[in-house]
């Protein structure tokens, strides 16, 4: 996968977030401050405009542009978390990525999210979808699956991880102030990560 393919992934992610904006906001209204959908959509709209204005010439430049734009435009906690993920991915990306290369890049992104947010698995955060997705991608590639199939396995794992956040009590972010009352709702960040992985499965690999 090259810069063009990866740009298509980001554009697809932006499209999915725009499509699910109200759903993300409703989830965030239940246990957070009700702005995840609006903030992510504002950030990704700016990302798409920035990529069109000045198409990046490498995966690294692409991820850096995405990360910087999200940091500048999203605000809240998702801006720094997604932004840091993409900046770490930029640092880890080669000029052309195969499945294993993409898995390495994605794991760097996960490491960035963990470093920035200090969340552990089970804290009811985006880590609970991104962690299983990265692990599933590695496992599928190691068992000899093609890139497309491996990305689908990753997207499925993200969705399962998101579902698994429903009964959890939040330990990070604004939802944590609710204590037990945060249980019974999926985490909005894990939900947007699921969209990111679905976009990867539908646009990347052949």
């Amino acid at each position: 996968m090259d810069t063009k393919d990866l740009t298509a992934w980001i554009r697809e992610f932006a499209g999915l977030v725009a499509q699910h904006k109200d759903e993300l906001t409703a989830l965030d209204s239940a246990i957070g401050d009700g702005d995840h959908g609006v903030n992510m959509d504002r950030g990704l709209t700016a990302v798409v405009a920035a990529l069109e204005a000045e198409p990046p010439d490498s995966p690294s430049a692409l991820f850096k542009k995405v990360g910087m734009t999200l940091i500048s435009k999203v605000g809240g906690a998702s801006g720094p978390l997604y932004g840091t993920a993409f900046l770490r991915m930029a640092a880890a990306a080669d000029s052309v990525l195969d499945g294993a290369g993409f898995a390495k890049v994605l794991r760097s992104g996960l490491d960035g999210v963990v470093a920035r947010g200090k969340a552990q698995p089970g804290d009811k955060t985006m880590v609970d979808a991104l962690g299983p997705a990265v692990d599933a991608l590695d496992a599928a590639l190691a068992s000899g699956a093609g890139t497309k199939a491996a990305l689908q396995a990753a997207a499925d794992a993200a969705e399962q991880g998101r579902e698994a956040t429903i009964p959890l009590v939040a330990r990070k972010g604004r939802a944590s102030y609710l204590g037990e009352r945060s249980a019974g709702h999926p985490d909005p960040g894990a939900t947007s990560v699921t969209l990111l992985m679905q976009a990867a499965a539908s646009t990347l690999g052949s």
């Binding site: 940091i71 605000g75 809240g76 906690a77 801006g79 720094p80 978390l81 932004g83 840091t84 920035r116 947010g117 990070k172 972010g173 604004r174």
Partner: peptide, 11 residues
């Protein structure tokens, strides 16, 4: 001390 404020100031 709010998650978003702390992370944005850190960055």
């Amino acid at each position: 001390n709010y998650t978003g404020d702390v992370m944005n100031f850190e960055l």
